[in-house]
Design a protein around this nucleic acid. Structure first.
Length: 849
RNA sequence: GCCCGGAUGGCGGAACUGGUAGACGCAAGGGACUUAAAAUCCCUCGGUUCUUGUAACUGUGCGAGUUCGAUUCUCGCUCCGGGCACCA
């Protein structure tokens, strides 16, 4: 088994092309990263956000997947059973656009891209279990999504309703909010119009509270993302309260988070879409002007869609209602700033304590009545309608509020809600900003929604045994007008219940649906059900999830929601999908995000052919910590390449120490790693041995605490520099083989997760045939890292004046004395009185004079 | 407007729990090797001043404060980035 000197491979240059091809083939052939459930081994599920197959990989992918691969390989070396899968978020609009433009079918376009990008990812040497690859556009994926959809439909968590959507007439499709730019379609620049139409919704609001509460469990998530989600869900607690309309049967229900200001109500504002508006004005002289106002506002609202806040406008309806607390008569207005989608679409207006109401009151000459006085104000500073220049929105003490006078805001809120409840005109109420999730899209390249519309039976689910509902047609779907609705053989179908002619649903699902559960599907990607419960039980939750912060809200919220849905459908048993989340920064160049329009795009493919995957990986890890933006720098890449070459030469120059070791091993009949006693080492050997172990400590801690690979790499560079000096021409003493061997092997092992081909090759070069993936990650000896000597800084009045070299363990008094005896210190303190001396053990002495 | 981040040499970035600011790399300058270049190796490298050294002063966006001591903690600003944006 052992080698002789002649058998050691000889290299001159670092031939990355040959090395990378060799190991990639090896990993593929031996399925090195294929995993299965193994109860005996601790699992680690590492996941990077899967890519959209747009055509080629970009630098963002390179960075994301390099970071992930380091963690995967590191965890394997730590002995974990690592699940590290990859797949494709393969449905989406770009495929359809490409189809329209080039006459290629979206499926063909998508699968070609996948094939190309898979090659590119493999060329990066990423350690995926490729047997688990999934593409969401594959019927074997989306059929299970359709099944889950039907199960949710049955549970009442999916429903259909008519709502106002952003509609582009030219594209004949609904646009998502983020696809409307300045009120125009992002694709054709056509003015977007509001349109009422039916769509399918998921009841995410049923889970709003749990989605909010469970955020507290996500200690492994960046605080920033948790905050964004909390704000997005936007829970508000307050009072829902009825205001009786004068001379009508109707009541107006309002929602307020400030019940303590209810005695300050001076008018009522309704949203233009409020259902009561029509009734209130019907047949009155205000009917015409109010109608005109409503219509104009609706048009403006659409146009302003993404713009700045428009000026506040409103109009009096001519009607009044009664404040149930005061029985006061309050005029009812319709106002452009009241949202129908939030709360009840009706707002009690308290100009003294709400800035919007204040501005509105100023404009229309409505009274301002302060009822909450800020605390600790002298009488002359009390708020009154005369002296107020803006609303006071803070808490305070109630005044002019009947029986509630003198109560602080917090108590008053409770008391007022209680009062409303006992009197029967209101109760505590909770409102969320979060809305139900509209999943209908009038597009072709998505998962067909598996229902049938029958004139007699209504909405009929497609029977489970008829799933999947396949996307029809091998030809390119022409036009973009509800493509599935143009394929008669697709949508004309008999009703499964009554057999009468019926129509299939022709909407497809939002592509966020597929990415909401793919992480679970990876645990059993080929199983004949949505999930295999045992596999899910073993692997979930994801231990570490990595991706761009741009998905902080939608994708991550939907994935959390789906986890809870799948849990309640009893497919899995975790509450949260991702225990730890790492949001990596963008890759930028010349201070700006890489984009075609800016012409600052760097193609990873070219870089890999020029320098090799290992260099590209190394640079993207070294240039910045993962969570920060990474400024791309071509010269920096060159530097990383130089470093690898330096290590390569260093190994070759010192291969003697391995050959000698082989001979020794042969002679001693295969003895294990030679151990050496610290005491016998020369100072130079001791120093290198210490540095080796300090580096192990530093690299391990950099990875463990926050994945700061940049400092880990810097640490290895320092070790390499030290080995170079110790073995170079200028070295005073020769280095012991065993010490040198340990140092060099450590470099190879520590760098392996980052530059795997390179290290595996060197590992073989120095005589091992084992895969580094399963080599035990090196551990450091606390004995070895100890310093014999410490540098103690001596300060006078906090300024560094001198440094002392002392042996480790020198006691405080001794150090103090040495400091006071130091010539350079004497210079500073001789003519002054020493007031105080502070000694920090092992660090410094500060003399205060 | 509100809520989060961030600001350190020419550049990317280090700095444990308040204790040597600038690790590591890039760029730049100088030198060695070479007929020459590339590659490689060595030296210098925050600023200012001088008496050129184990020198002094100054320096982590700006201004205060706490402390023997602040890049680090507190308060007040400025600028940059991100998220939300009439949410009652």
């Amino acid at each position: 088994m052992s080698k002789t000197a002649q058998e050691f491979p000889k290299y001159d240059v670092y031939d990355f092309k040959a090395i990378e091809a060799k190991w990639q083939q090896h990993w593929q052939k031996t399925k090195s990263y294929k995993v299965g459930e193994d109860a005996a081994q601790e699992k680690y599920y590492l996941l990077e956000m899967f890519p959209y197959p747009s055509g080629r990989i970009h630098m963002g992918h390179v960075r994301n997947y390099s970071i992930g691969d380091v963690i995967a390989r590191y965890k394997r070396m730590q002995g974990y059973n690592v699940l590290h899968p990859m797949g494709w978020d393969a449905f989406g609009l770009p495929a359809e656009n490409a189809a329209l433009k080039n006459g290629v079918h979206p499926a063909q376009w998508t699968y070609e891209n996948i094939n190309y990008m898979r090659k590119q990812l493999k060329a990066m040497g990423l350690s995926y279990d490729w047997d688990r690859e999934i593409a969401t556009c594959h019927p074997e994926y989306y059929r299970w999504e359709q099944l889950v959809f039907l199960q949710l439909l049955e549970k009442g968590l999916v429903y259909r309703k008519k709502t106002t959507v952003n509609w582009c007439e030219d594209c004949a499709t609904v646009l998502a909010r983020e696809q409307v730019i300045d009120g125009r379609c992002w694709r054709c620049d056509q003015q977007v119009i509001p349109k009422n139409m039916y769509g399918w919704f998921l009841k995410i609001t049923d889970y709003a509270d749990e989605l909010l509460e469970d955020l507290d469990q996500l200690s492994g998530w960046p605080e920033k993302v948790v905050t964004m989600q909390r704000n997005w869900i936007g829970k508000s607690q307050g009072l829902a309260c009825d205001f009786q309309v004068e001379d009508e049967e109707e009541k107006i229900t309002i929602f307020t988070t400030r019940p303590d200001t209810i005695y300050g109500v001076t008018f009522m504002s309704l949203a233009v879409e409020h259902p009561l508006v029509d009734k209130l004005i019907a047949g009155t002289e205000q009917e015409q002007p109010v109608r005109a106002f409503v219509e104009q506002t609706l048009v403006e609202k659409q146009r302003m869609a993404m713009d700045q806040e428009p000026e506040k406008h409103g109009i009096f309806t001519g009607k009044y209602c009664f404040n149930p607390f005061t029985n006061e008569r309050v005029p009812i207005y319709v106002a452009n700033f009241v949202l129908m989608e939030y709360g009840t679409g009706a707002v009690m207006a308290v100009p003294a304590h709400d800035q919007r109401d204040f501005e509105f009151a100023q404009k229309y000459g409505l009274p301002v009545r302060p009822v909450v006085q800020p605390e600790k104000k002298v009488d002359s500073e009390r708020l009154d309608s005369e002296n107020m220049e803006s609303a006071w929105e803070g808490d305070g003490i109630l005044a002019d509020s009947g029986p509630f006078n003198g109560l602080p805001s917090a108590e008053a809120k409770k008391a007022i809600i209680d009062h409303a409840k006992t009197q029967g005109f209101g109760q505590a109420h909770i409102t969320y900003r979060l809305r139900d999730w509209g999943i209908s899209r009038q597009r072709y390249w998505g998962t067909p929604i598996p229902v049938i519309h029958c004139d007699t039976c209504g909405v009929v689910p497609v029977p489970a045994e008829q799933l999947p509902v396949l996307l029809p047609g091998s030809q390119v779907p022409y036009g973009s007008h509800a493509p599935l609705h143009q394929q008669e053989d697709f949508y004309r179908i008999p009703c499964p219940k009554c057999g009468q002619p019926a129509q299939r649903e022709t909407d497809t699902m939002d592509t966020f649906m597929e990415s909401s559960w793919y992480f679970a599907r990876y645990t059993s990607p080929r199983t004949d059900a949505p999930l295999d419960k045992e596999a899910a039980q073993y692997w979930l939750a994801v231990d570490q999830y990595i991706g761009g912060v741009e998905h902080a809200i939608l994708h991550l919220l939907y994935a959390r929601f789906f986890t809870k849905l799948l849990r309640d459908l009893e497919y899995l048993s975790v509450d949260e999908p991702f225990n730890n989340l790492l949001t990596q920064g963008m890759v930028i160049k010349d201070g700006a995000k890489m984009s075609k329009s800016k012409g600052n795009v760097v193609d990873p493919h070219e870089l890999i052919s020029q320098y090799g995957a290992d260099t590209v990986r190394l640079f993207s890890l070294f240039a910045a910590p993962p969570e920060r933006d990474l400024e791309w720098n071509a010269q920096g890449v060159e530097g990383s390449f130089r470093f690898l070459n330096r290590v390569f030469r260093l190994m070759q120059a010192n291969k003697e120490c391995f050959i000698a070791y082989e001979r020794e091993r042969e002679r001693e009949g295969g003895a294990e790693e030679a151990s050496f006693s610290l005491a016998k080492l020369s100072p130079a050997d001791r120093q290198l041995h210490r540095k080796t172990h300090q580096t192990i400590q530093r690299v391990t801690e950099s990875i463990e605490t926050n994945f700061h690979f940049n400092t880990a790499i810097a640490g290895v560079m320092e070790l390499v520099n030290q080995i170079t000096v110790a073995t170079g021409d200028g070295a005073k003493q020769p280095v012991e083989d065993a010490v040198l061997r340990e140092a060099l092997q450590t470099v190879v092992m520590l760098l392996f997760p980052m530059v795997p081909h390179f290290c595996q090759e060197l590992w073989q070069f120095i005589g091992y045939n084992t895969p580094l993936d399963h080599q035990q990650w090196p551990t450091y000896s606390t004995e070895a890292i100890k310093e014999d000597e410490l540098t103690i800084v001596v300060q006078v009045n906090g300024k560094v004046r001198s440094r002392l070299q002392v042996a480790t363990g020198t006691d405080t008094e001794e150090i103090k004395q040495q400091a006071l005896d130091d010539e350079r210190i004497i210079k500073f303190i001789s003519d002054k009185t020493v007031k105080k001396i502070i000694v920090v053990k092992g660090k410094l002495v500060n003399i205060v004079v």
